[in-house]
Simulated scan of single mutants.
Amino acid sequence: MAKQNSQTATSKTAPSSAVVCPFMSFEEVLAMTGYKNRPTLYAQIANGFPAPVALGPLRSNGRASKVAWVRAEVEQWIADVIAAPRHLDRKSQVQSA
C-alpha cells in the first residue's frame, strides 16, 4: 500500500480575509521599490516618495526611534509611477510624427 501524505490538500497561502499591516518596514519598502539603500530612499522623498511616519518616541536628537511607511501611500506612489508617461513612449511618438 502506498504511503499517503499526512498533509491534506490545503492552500499554503493566507486566506483572503487576512489582515495586512498598514505599515511597512524599511526593508519591505526597499524590496517593493527596488531601491538599494537608505540614502537613496530618503533622497527620493524630496522627489515625491512618501515620507515615513514616526512610531516610537523621539530621541534626544529630535529624530524618531522607529519609523515605518504607510503601505497605502507606497502602493499609490508605485501605481502613479506606473501610470506616468514614459520617456520611451514620448520618444517613439516624436519619431513617428
Rank of each mutant, 00 (worst) to 15 (best):
L30R: 01
T8W: 09
P50E: 01
A9I: 06
V74W: 00
V81S: 13
P52C: 09
A72E: 15
N37M: 03
A79T: 14
P85K: 06
A72F: 01
K12M: 14
L88C: 08
T10E: 05
R63T: 08
R86L: 07
D89F: 00
A72N: 11
E27P: 01
V74C: 02
E75D: 13
A46H: 11
A84Y: 07
Q95T: 09
R38M: 06
S65A: 09
K3T: 06
E28C: 03
K36F: 11
Q4L: 05
T40N: 13
Q95S: 04
Q76T: 15
K91Q: 10
V74E: 05
K12T: 09
P85R: 08
D80F: 00
A46G: 13
A43V: 00
W77Q: 08
S92A: 14
A64L: 02
A64N: 10
L41M: 14
H87M: 12
G34Y: 08
N61S: 10
A18I: 05
R86C: 04
A83I: 08
R63H: 07
P50N: 00
K66H: 07
P57T: 04
G56N: 03
L88F: 11
N47W: 02
L88D: 15
V19L: 05
W77R: 08
A18G: 04
A72Q: 13
A84C: 07
T8S: 15
V53F: 06
Y35V: 07
M32W: 03
A43I: 04
C21I: 01
S60R: 06
A68F: 00
L30N: 01
I82C: 10
W69V: 03
A68Y: 01
A84G: 13
N47K: 15
L30W: 03
P50Q: 04
M1R: 10
A84K: 14
R38S: 10
Y35C: 01
P50H: 00
N47S: 14
W69H: 02
A14T: 14
K91G: 09
T13F: 08
L30D: 01
N5T: 13
A18T: 14
P52M: 02
W77A: 07
A84D: 14
P39H: 05
A64W: 01
